[in-house]
């Protein structure tokens, strides 16, 4: 079960939706919405320092000020610097295969989801995270190559 999730999206409608769908199926989930990707990045750094990272970051790609790709690049170097792990799932309205390929290059990205968010998507992601966090040792090699 997801307990803490950040949603990063420049579109207030998408934030409203993702938040509501998320809490609909994960009743105890604490979700925070970030319309400003910079703020989300700052918060993640702070969380890393206090050891309170979210279980998952849902990230939009097509944002005018800082694109999702730029966010991933910056988060990647933060993660390298602090030797922390952070799971990101892309949540985008894009159905562009190129975007999908580009995201797959980032080691942070555990899934590429096409909006709107559904329960089965959340289910798959929860399973993927449990698998990664469970039997595997906490630092997976190759994870730091963004």
């Amino acid at each position: 079960m997801l307990k803490k999730v950040y949603i990063v999206d420049d579109d207030p409608l998408s934030l409203f939706l993702a938040k509501n769908i998320l809490t609909l199926y994960n009743i105890n989930c604490k979700s925070s919405c970030y319309i400003d990707a910079n703020q989300a990045l700052d918060q993640l750094v702070e969380d890393a320092l206090t050891g309170d990272l979210p279980d998952l970051v849902l990230l939009d790609l097509n944002m005018p000020l800082m694109s999702g790709f730029e966010f991933l690049r910056r988060l990647g170097s933060v993660c390298r610097g602090l030797e922390m792990e952070c799971f990101v799932a892309i949540l985008t309205s894009s159905i562009d295969e190129e975007d999908k390929k580009r995201c797959a290059e980032s080691a942070l990205v555990i899934d590429f989801l096409e909006k709107p968010l559904t329960n089965s998507m959340l289910h798959t992601i929860t399973k993927a995270i449990t698998k990664k966090n469970g039997p595997l040792p906490d630092n997976v090699p190759g994870r730091e190559q963004i």
Partner: peptide
Amino acid sequence: KVIAHDLRKPVANALGFARLLKEGVLAADE
């Protein structure tokens, strides 16, 4: 690109809202 990104965006949102409303779990104001 416009179709894959820009046009797809409101479609995705509309889908999301319609599904959310169909579930009938929102509070009245929501």
